[in-house]
Design a protein around this nucleic acid. Structure first.
Lengths: 208, 208, 208, 208
DNA sequence: CATGAATGAGCATTCATTCAT
DNA sequence: TATGAATGAATGCTCATTCAT
């Protein structure tokens, strides 16, 4: 089977031009130790072994390149999540797994986490990008699990589903953020445990 | 009495040159909406209504200006804290008030909080600055309250005091950080409550 | 034959980018009337008909540009000297020709002389530059002629060869310096005559 | 007697304002280790213990300050020379003493020498300054000694006196310049000896 | 006699971006 | 598919100089 650790290889990754791949890879590598604004196009090109001009052949500008890198991460996470949720029954169980998956991908992909939480957030062009739609799609996934839970009477129906979603995603960010910014360890298991205890106490339906 | 909200006006603030005052004020204002690296000296000067050169008459460079602004905040908070702790008895009670004071100053001075938590932390020159000594002084204050608590048998003596301090200050940062970065509300009362419950359960001495 | 005054045209000169050529040429021209520190990058760029940024594409900084210009001169002189020494027999005769060549290149290339004698000398980065190695190579050439002279019993063997070299090169500088700084005429023939009389009287071996 | 090493104290030196004295002294000190263009007004003021503004109370600009410092040296040298020539008989003997005096003042006052030989020469405002008149006066002194020598038939009358003067002063500069620029020792006795031998052979009248 | 406050013009250097080939 | 050459608009910072007091 064409998988690595349960992650499907994207088939189109193969036929992307080599220069393009080198560029995105170079940015990822550089982002491990520097913040995006501190990285120059010259640096990216040099690390990629291509010329600066090539960046502008494949990406409309420097931020667009960042969005594309983010998109790769998001797509991988999308595939991963789909895999992770397979065979799980019940909305609460699905949410628990999703929370773990989310925290885990932040814990193991600091670059991904940092791009999403600190690099793109304050820039309006991000919200207009194609990449942002992937985040919205993910957001929709979370919402539909919650709605499934309400329908199946696992989750209280007196809190607006979107508020629940906001609570969940906000909490995840909150517990991960300082770990990401200050480079501290993030323990997916522990954080998931703490978070679920806290969240589910509030949203789970107390059967009559 | 010469006070505002219990904060003594620094008498020397009056005889600082007007240009200097305008510059620090301009930076504070700009920091409300932009991050430090995105603010240019030209912008600061224009907002202050002075020339760029004047910045370098009063500050050795752009970062030094940032440190000076931070110092003003720190000095004010130092005075405020001293006031706040007056008349409070018992280490636990003092710590509770200190935690509230700390969270409150972050909640009401977002610029202060952002400088301290995100702008200066990664830059080594900060740790060599005079300003950093104020932070250390504050850190010492926290430590001496903890030691007082241990001595008076309010606080467990089997955890190293510095570890307790690290836990307290780290928790404060953790709960405030996402509020600060994403510009969300911070409720000093609620956060203090949550935090104290969590912290004091761990450190308070169970009387035999 | 592809020569000018016996100097081989460097073949790689042709395929240097035009902008780079324009920049070095512009600096050479400006150095005829101004000292290096008084020349701004803006001036260089304007004279070259390029933008200031291009200077930094080809040279790491302003002084590096100066070193590159100096290197061109040194390389040309190196080629010239090799040519000039061809077919000359005897160390004393070679030294005489070398002295004339040296003085002559100063006399005809004031810019070259001024860079070498007044612009780079006091700056430590020069001594770390690649260009400086060319000067050392030249220095080695002089030394080996002296050693040849000692071996062939043309030159006294009771003075350390390096001291002899120091005397020769120091004298050349001394007699040329005021001409260069005050823009006076330099007569290679006369100066060589005077210098050789003085130098050779001291170092030539009196046959027993 | 009101002298130091034979140099008359200028009586007006006493009633110059202290700030002015501090400024000129500061520049002299700084010139020992840095070139004039590399010295800032801020530096001068700081070293003098006064404010930058005061410089502009006493001097019209930075170069004017330099000229004033030069003037002090020139005035001192003028007084010294007058003293040195006292009681000497014969133009040739006077010239010899003058040459020694000139070289000696360069040897013992590097700052003076450097100002005169490298700092002011290329700047047209120097030639319009009051200070330049002192140099011309000195030049006149030399000329009149030469004319005295011609009149007394000590010196050849078939070379224009001004050409002789040019030769003498030019030679002095020539032999001192490299010592000054490269910071080498200057030996007044030896250089005077060499120079006089060379010069006097050319200009002395061979009696029939 | 001296200062404190402020400035205008300029400096070397950087960087994302463009375009003809 | 990729490059080499070039740029325009800043950027942080410096410095001689002015002027009211």
């Amino acid at each position: 089977m064409n998988t690595i650790n349960g992650i499907m290889k994207r088939p189109n990754k193969k036929n992307l031009p080599p220069g393009r791949l080198k560029i995105t890879q170079a940015l990822k590598t550089l982002l491990e130790h520097k913040e995006f604004n501190g990285i120059t196009t010259a640096e990216i090109a040099k690390n990629a072994g291509v010329t600066e001009a090539l960046i502008y052949k494949y990406f409309s500008d420097k931020r667009d390149l960042l969005h594309e890198v983010l998109r790769e991460y998001l797509e991988n996470y999308g595939v991963q999540l789909e895999w992770d949720l397979k065979g799980i029954k019940g909305a609460i169980n699905k949410l628990r797994k999703l929370i773990w998956s989310h925290i885990n991908v932040y814990a193991t992909n600091r670059v991904f986490a940092r791009i999403l939480l600190v690099e793109v957030r304050n820039h309006p062009d991000y919200y207009r990008s194609e990449t942002y739609k992937l985040v919205q799609k993910y957001s929709d996934t979370v919402l539909s699990i919650i709605q499934e839970g309400i329908r199946d009477q696992e989750i209280r129906d007196d809190i607006p589903p979107k508020l629940i979603r906001h609570g969940i995603l906000g909490s995840i960010e909150q517990v991960c953020l300082s770990g990401i910014i200050f480079g501290r360890e993030i323990s997916p298991e522990d954080l998931t445990e703490d978070l679920c205890e806290f969240i589910f106490k509030g949203i789970e339906r107390k059967d009559v």
